[in-house]
């Protein structure tokens, strides 16, 4: 239980920030459904299991927001960690597996699809979607949040809450997507390189869990920090096992035996 004045205790002022997040997530779910329908209408079918992945991801995100919304401030650091696992890790992974960019390219007409494709090729976007950069933004963001006083300040105003959570979600999504490499990419990284980045990111997450265990963020009681850190460590392992599994699966599909094509001599 948090007493008044703890960083996890905020007034009703922060509730609307959580509402914006939840509404944004619901909006993403509706957009995907619209793109799914449009792609089918244009005669390009899209596997329904990806729609289910996207909707499960959106649901996980909303549950995560509710678990640690400012209205639930009494729930404390453990609830915040539930939110981190659901909203920052599981939801982005499920949504990355749904391949939204590929679906969007299919749903749009040719002119708009080309515009989107050239937008995706722009240097700033290519930079942040590189697996190494995405990994640093994702894990580095978490270190900033828990190992500095950002965690305390985040709860001081709704904009802090909104920007931190927005970053956690987007960085989690871009990282999952970059590791899976399942969207169109003119310069894909090799599997071995992505495996290396994935391992370093996992290590960064588990080291941070133990750091939080020993050094509670400002205002978090030691017992709550310990329980939250262990949830972060083992819950993180569970979500990361999913990411590793689907990453390895992309390798398994890529190296499948194929009949050799006839050699062209000339």
């Amino acid at each position: 239980m948090n007493m008044n004045g703890s960083p996890l205790n905020h007034g009703a002022a922060g509730v609307w920030a959580a509402c914006i997040l939840a509404a944004g997530t619901a909006g993403l779910a509706i957009l995907y459904i619209l793109a799914f329908i449009r792609s089918h209408r244009r005669g390009r079918s899209w596997p329904p299991h990806r729609l289910i992945l996207w909707l499960s991801g959106a649901s996980a995100a909303i549950v995560g927001i509710l678990a640690s919304s400012p209205a639930q401030a009494h729930a404390g650091f453990v609830a915040h960690m539930v939110s981190h696992l659901l909203f920052g890790m599981l939801a982005p992974l499920l949504m990355a597996l749904a391949r939204p960019v590929t679906l969007l390219l299919r749903a749009l007409d040719v002119t708009h699809a080309r515009k989107l494709a050239s937008l995706l090729k722009m240097p700033p976007l290519r930079f942040v979607t590189h697996p190494a950069v995405a990994g640093i933004l994702n894990i580095g963001g978490l270190w900033l949040l828990y190992a500095t006083d950002v965690f305390g300040k985040m709860h001081a105003n709704p904009f802090g809450y909104l920007s931190v959570h927005g970053h956690l979600f987007i960085a989690g999504y871009v990282f999952s997507s970059a590791i899976l490499g399942n969207e169109p990419n003119p310069h894909p990284s090799s599997h071995i390189f992505r495996a290396l980045i994935l391992i370093l990111a996992l290590a960064g997450h588990s080291i941070l869990s133990k750091y939080v265990y020993a050094h509670p963020p400002a205002g978090v009681p030691a017992s709550e920090a310990e329980a939250g850190a262990m949830l972060m460590y083992y819950g993180g392992d569970a979500v990361e096992a999913l990411l590793i599994f689907f990453f390895c699966r992309t390798w398994y599909v890529a190296v499948r035996p194929r009949p050799r094509l006839p050699q062209v001599k000339g």
């Binding site: 994935l198 391992i199 996992l202 290590a203 588990s206 080291i207 133990k210 750091y211 096992a241 398994y252």
Partner: peptide, 21 residues
């Protein structure tokens, strides 16, 4: 020690699943 532990934890977790594939 913490970094070494974290790296090995991550690597072994990855290795188990990768080995099956």
């Amino acid at each position: 020690g913490l970094v070494s532990d974290g790296l090995f934890h991550a690597f072994s977790w990855f290795a188990t699943l990768a080995a099956f594939f």
